[in-house]
Structures are given as structure tokens and as C-alpha cells.
Nucleic acid binder design. Sequence first.
DNA 1: CCTTGACCCTGTAGTTGCTACAGGGTGCAT
DNA 2: ATGCACCCTGTAGCAACTACAGGGTCAAGG
Lengths: 139, 139
Amino acid sequence: MAQAPPMTIGDLAAATNTRVETVRWYEKMKLLPAPERSAGNYRLYGPEHLRRLSFIRRGRDLGFTVDQIRELLAMADDRDRSCAEVDTIARAHLAQVERKLADLTRLAHELRDVIGQCGCGSVADCRIIEALSPHGDPS
Amino acid sequence: MAQAPPMTIGDLAAATNTRVETVRWYEKMKLLPAPERSAGNYRLYGPEHLRRLSFIRRGRDLGFTVDQIRELLAMADDRDRSCAEVDTIARAHLAQVERKLADLTRLAHELRDVIGQCGCGSVADCRIIEALSPHGDPS
DNA sequence: CCTTGACCCTGTAGTTGCTACAGGGTGCAT
DNA sequence: ATGCACCCTGTAGCAACTACAGGGTCAAGG
């Protein structure tokens, strides 16, 4: 069984659908440990880095902040710790997502209302502009 | 009929539920025209500023970007122009909101799934951590 | 052997929409 | 005259990247 050869930063980025600059940024932010370097000073990554970066990316896709991911990683690294903290973070995050969802739903309704009323005449009687303007401009 | 006396930046901010710094920032970003100044170099605002800032704030509440609001303002200022462009911006924005809404809905589902599976034992078999990790780690 | 081109390196500045000072000046009431 | 609340400018910070600039490295083709 041959070991997989180390990956360059470009390989790692491609494998995780990440930009090279972002990988370097995660390293600076200490989400990803600094890897070994080649003779020519290139970063060389192994499968452990791939796993960790995949974790980070998935967390980001799920909308966790970098700080939350840092906490999740610390917990995942400490496998004897209770899972309750992980659950707490996830639940707090879900609550936040649900709040945002409610906001956006309301917003979409308002926008649909506003757009529905527009007869597309001249701006002078555009309902969209009117809806944005302070109520009823009496002059 | 007495004219309303000019408002200070604090008054204007209070009347529109905005922070003073934000008002100054809108001025620098050229959303709000620079007002006259008092002898002591205080900004003095009139009802036109109040109207314009209300418009901006309402647009921001509806999730328009500052750039979009700048365009909407330019159109609103030019009252003979066709309303079709306004409609275009609003529709594009709605489409974007709906995309974000779909993403967040999917995300909330995933988070609920992940949280539901957590029996809260030790991290070693935490389903949340597992769900974030790359599929199935065969070793 | 040399060049070309794709990749890599560091470091810094830009993005969005504000927010938070620091270090001062103004205006009004006591 | 002395507080105190408010105003001024200017700069730096937040999140999470993204986009250079100005260089170095490496493998392949001629």
C-alpha cells in the first residue's frame, strides 16, 4: 500500500472547492495547522489536512462562523469530552438561522407586494418608490 | 405657518432610528447630501433630508444594498423617467432574496436533522461532529 | 540549456455596511 | 465658570474572505 503523495495547496483547494487564498487565510486564522514545506518552500498537505479542511468548509456551508468552527474543532479533537456543548452550539445556530429565515420571509412578502403594485408608468407614480418613501408626503 | 427649525444630526438620527455615525457615513458615501452648517460647524438638516434618510433606511430594511439604493434614489429624483428600471432592480432583488430563502430553508433542515440525531454521549460518537466530517472516514 | 507557463510564496489593501473610539470643540443650564 | 450632553474629524476595527503586486519554483518542450 503506497502512501498518498503530499498535495500542494492548489490540489487541496481543488479537492475542497476552496480558493488557494482562503486556505492560506484559514492557516493564518489557526483553523488549519501550518503544514510542512517542500525544499522550494511549498506547503505540503496530507490526508489529515484534507479531512480538517473538509470539516471547516462543511461547517461554513452550514453557516457556522469561523469562531464556532474553531470551537467545534477543539471539541472534535478532544474525543472524550461531552457532546452536550456541540449540541448547544448547533442549537443556538439553528435558532439564529430560523430567525433569519423569518425575517427573509417577511421581506419577500413585502417585496412581492411592492412589485405587484407597479404599473410601470413613470417614476412620478411608481408604487415601488412610493413604498420606500415616508408615508404619504402631504404637500 | 412657521417653518420647522433645522434639526441637528442627533435629532435626525433619532427620527429615523439611525446612529449618528451612520448618518455621517451615508453623507460620505454620497447617499445623503451634505447639509448646511451652523456657526459652530454643526450639520443642520431640513425635512428634505429627513425624507431622503427615511427612504434610505426603509430600503436597507428591505435588504437593498447601498448601491441599489443609490440607483433607486437617482431614479426617484428624475420623476419623468420610466418606472421600468425601478421594477427591474426590485425584481432582481426579490430573486436574490428568494434564493437566499431557499438556501436557508435547506440549511435549517440539515441542522435539524443533525441535532435530532445527537444522543449527547461523548464526542467520540457525536452525530453532529460526524455530520460535519467528510463521509465515513475508513481506517 | 533555456525558456515558457503554470503554479507557489509573502505581504498588503480592498470589499460591505457600518461601529467604536480618540481627541478635540460647542451650547446650554446651573 | 463649570458641568454635561452633544457635535466635529479622522482613523481603525469587524467578518470572511478576495485581489493584487512583486517575486520564486518546477516540469515540459524545443
